[in-house]
């Protein structure tokens, strides 16, 4: 919950609501990207970028090397699996939202 997890932004699903799809170690999840949107630039610029995701909100953009290092750290701490479990747990709700 507090450490978050890095994921890659793969699509902007709802530009008005500032929602995107983020791929977190193979799990796709709708994420709010308003805290990492760059003022004056289209949201599509975020596609392909890595972000640190905290409880469904992208909170910081990071480079790929940092993202991979953080993922490895979270795997070691057992936190990555906990995050993925929490995401899987609510996958139904999330799909409902994306649809």
């Amino acid at each position: 919950m507090c450490l978050g997890i890095p994921g890659r932004i793969t699509a902007i699903t709802d530009p008005g609501a500032m929602l995107a799809t983020v791929d977190v170690s193979g799990i796709r999840r709708t994420v709010d990207v308003q805290c990492v949107a760059e003022p004056g630039r289209p949201l599509d610029d975020l596609i392909g970028r890595w972000a640190l995701v905290h409880v469904g909100f992208a909170m910081a953009l990071v480079d790929e090397e940092e993202a991979r290092a953080t993922l490895a750290l979270l795997e070691t701490l057992g936190e990555a699996e906990a995050e993925r479990d929490a995401m899987r747990l609510t996958a139904d709700l999330d799909r409902g939202e994306a649809a």
Binding site: V55, G56, E83, A86, M87, L89, T90, L93, E97
Partner: peptide, 15 residues
């Protein structure tokens, strides 16, 4: 219910 995100709670409220 355990959720991953407050957005999940909002989704439950809509449903």
């Amino acid at each position: 219910r355990m959720v991953y995100s407050p957005l999940d709670a909002l989704a439950l409220a809509r449903r």
